[in-house]
Design a protein around this nucleic acid. Sequence first.
DNA 1: CCGCTGAACTTAACCGGTTCACTATACCTA
DNA 2: TAGGTATAGTGAACCGGTTAAGTTCAGCGG
Lengths: 337, 337
Amino acid sequence: MTTRERPTLEAVARRAGVSRATVSRVVNGSTTVAATIREAVNHAVEELGYVPNQAARSLVTQRTDSIALILPETANRVFSDDLFFPAIIRGVGMELEAADKQLVLMMTGSEAGHHRVERYAVAGHVDGVMFASIHGADPLPGALARRGIPVICSGRPMNAEPPVPYVDVDHAGGVAAAVRHLIGTGRQRIATIAGPQDMVAGVERLAGYTDTLRSAGLPELVVAGDFTRESGITGMRTLLAQDPALDAVFVASDLMAHGALLALREAGRRVPADVAVIGFDDFEISRYSDPPLTTVRQPIGEMGRTLARQMLRLISGEPDVPESIVLPTELIVRDSA
Amino acid sequence: MTTRERPTLEAVARRAGVSRATVSRVVNGSTTVAATIREAVNHAVEELGYVPNQAARSLVTQRTDSIALILPETANRVFSDDLFFPAIIRGVGMELEAADKQLVLMMTGSEAGHHRVERYAVAGHVDGVMFASIHGADPLPGALARRGIPVICSGRPMNAEPPVPYVDVDHAGGVAAAVRHLIGTGRQRIATIAGPQDMVAGVERLAGYTDTLRSAGLPELVVAGDFTRESGITGMRTLLAQDPALDAVFVASDLMAHGALLALREAGRRVPADVAVIGFDDFEISRYSDPPLTTVRQPIGEMGRTLARQMLRLISGEPDVPESIVLPTELIVRDSA
DNA sequence: CCGCTGAACTTAACCGGTTCACTATACCTA
DNA sequence: TAGGTATAGTGAACCGGTTAAGTTCAGCGG
């Protein structure tokens, strides 16, 4: 173990023949330092390979320049097959990197995960906490906000004690466009495979479906899924059993839609001739499914970026941070509908 | 902003009528504290909602209890479509969570990413650094190791100045099993779509293919890909152009294999009747491809867990940490070969 | 020529914990 | 009962930075 002694401010100061304070000011880019001295200090820093100790700095500045992103326990399941979280992470990561902040990823595992996250944040290890996809009425965002920690959610929290700012996409609008597209192409018996109803995304996509069909005076047929491919397969089978004559289905996630396509093929239905299918997400895989999937694109990466930008604003104490942002969705028409 | 004042050790000490030192010992679970006092202190901690300041603690303990996982710049591309990194992250996350360590995710973006990571680690923000998938002769692991920072790589680094410990899978062995399976089922003209040759995974999988074919006295046909689905499509087209009579192909990643299946269908070839296909990874999607993909399973999650476990050992200063671990791969036979 | 102003730097007080050296109290033995 | 020894708790130094307050000194107007 090459435990090289890390040089301290003190060492640099001695080397450069000045005081700690001066070195500190040079390192932090202060203006009130004579050019010659600044030169000497920088030289000493270079020679010794000095890097400021983050803990010491944080202790006095009360900032850590790192920000947490919380993935709910379901992320474990979802991670194995879903591209939502990776895309969020990527978007957040890019934005934070540009701002020279560090991303700290936390998963609220089964156990005392919630408590751990709270302790961690309260311990001042991060300057703020972002939530990627809230499950039901998670009390954590509210709890942290109450502690005075900047918090922002991706996906509207179902009910937060002190309302926390969030970034979300226009679920209902996207779904409405999708269902109207189905109606516009002559479909009459439009079913849906809904997402989990303890998540706002699940609730709102279902609401978009219900509202649009209702105002068109068409019958509704709903089965519940959990966003996984497997639940898409079983959901589609159930729907076909309940209404063998259905001619379209809106599926609340691309993964479930992929499952639905498999179930439809298994049942001998042609897509889109017999049954039209529209998904939601626009994952890469949907471009390559058979047939290529018509779907509602939600800008996940942009969501991540926005999430991070909002957080940066909150942290910098900007006054007029909008308390919520809703990004648009877009219907991507391919071959399945 | 509810910037609630966070209570300090001092506050708790006053409340409990003892000294800071005593509170510190109670909080850290020392044995030499009388039960009654411990009780009183815990009560005060509870009442005030005290959580130790991490920066202050780190400053003196020289530990942060968090560990970095570095995703190379390619992760950006890969993230959009690949499940390798998510699976690694998940495995690492679970193991670290169990050890009560925090996972800090860093992406070495295009720009000065490398330098940033180095600064970050040297600044003592993390106790160790794990690399998820090394690209070529990345100098960073070696540089950090030289600084005395615990480092471990997933995937054998191609050449690290001070050799750094790593965790990898038995690429060559898995590929050999796959190719032998093809040979054993009577295939004679076995091509391959290789991975990028600046990654050990790409190199070793190709070596496994070459060695096995050579010792069987069969002809080789190689085309290069970059692990993406798109490169699988174009790779397969190229192979078919070069040898229309080929009867099998080993594809160095599942995503590329998926692309290959699409290209084969496009060319009117039946799988496996005309051409047998074997992939590498065993992503979830391969169970649902058409036909379901025979592939070499690499235990990605286990790799992440092992990576984390090794790191924890390094950090704890355990003496006999094996400098490298190679996990087994396994041929999963489905319908495509 | 003197006092004033401001620039440039130093001194020293913190930030909030941990831990070593030390003291005080209780217990035990001779 | 005195002296020795655990045992429990206190005081203070220290970790490595930042920054407010203080010092020094050159320049300048009156």
